[in-house]
Design a protein around this nucleic acid. Structure first.
Lengths: 158, 158
DNA sequence: CCTGACTAGTTGACGCGTCACCCAGTATCT
DNA sequence: AGATACTGGGTGACGCGTCAACTAGTCAGG
């Protein structure tokens, strides 16, 4: 009814619109920088980070999907493209005929080592350099709350 | 601000990762809800909102693109799909043989009127219900700063 | 009027992401 | 051993988004 009003307050609307806009423009800016300084996309970067974090740069596809919080299908598509560009390679799993490993190639390792410093610099420059520790804490609190709600919603969906 | 230290602090990393995750999961959740309650996608919704905000539900394509901050190409692609589903219609502009109007059809109007309440409810439930006015202000401040940096970066790019 | 620059909008190709479905290998139960 | 279910992973189709190239209409200068 009118008591819990169906719309957003002025302030909420303003923050919401800007938030949405930032959420489209920030990834776009990061993507541009990454493309300018390397041949990597943002998702490429995420995959390569996971692989470098792993001993031997070798992971089971499903483990990688879980670490990235990606769907198996999405990862499969993406790995196919990355494999085509020589960034990763697939290997069979001796113990399980269904599974496969994803292995970081030397090109892949070289690519992310080349790209990482400028990428981190860009993240810092676009966000953290202008956001103090107190603001960061407030932001973190909001993000955590929204994530908690999203998880709640996800649980209730199953 | 220590622009020379190459990595992020612990706190910054934590907030950054959660932020990224929220930025992928929040649109996904909103999209799911919209699809469940209507036949609209999030971009469809944005387009329809603009059209209903306009007198007569009739806008020049370029004006629409500017209002949405979309590229002309993206809008053109999207309008083609929406036109195929009967949500909008194109009309010629008498005064300028190049241009065209986008017109909201009655199906389009019905679709967004049906979808809007649940969508707003979801936004409120996922975000604003758990974020107080003080936190909202802090969030707004951060968002504004990041947007300012993005605009600065965009200007320097041209 | 004609030519050249500019503008409105479209198209095609490609990367990204989801959904529905498929396939093959493994585990289990009898 | 054979039927069945489950699991790891892949595919195809389609919507979304960007980039580069294109078409057609307009406009300004000669």
């Amino acid at each position: 009814m009118e008591t819990d009003s169906p719309w957003l307050t002025e302030q909420q609307q303003r923050v919401w619109r800007n938030w949405l806009r930032m959420n489209t423009e920030l990834p776009a800016a990061l993507h541009r920088q990454l493309q300018a300084d390397s041949e990597l996309s943002l998702p490429d970067y995420d995959v390569l980070v996971q692989l470098t974090d792993t001993a031997e740069g070798r992971v089971r596809v499903l483990d990688l999907a879980r670490a990235l919080r990606w769907e198996r299908s999405r990862l499969s598509h993406h790995l196919k493209r990355m494999e085509g560009r020589g960034l990763v390679r697939r290997e069979e799993v001796p113990a399980d005929g269904r599974g496969s490993y994803v292995v970081l190639t030397s090109e892949g390792r070289a690519a992310i080592e080349k790209a990482a410093p400028a990428h981190v610099r860009t993240v810092r420059s676009l966000i953290f350099d202008s956001v103090g520790a107190d603001e960061l804490a407030a932001l973190g609190a909001v993000v955590d709350k929204v994530l908690a709600r999203l998880e709640e919603e996800e649980r209730s969906r199953r």
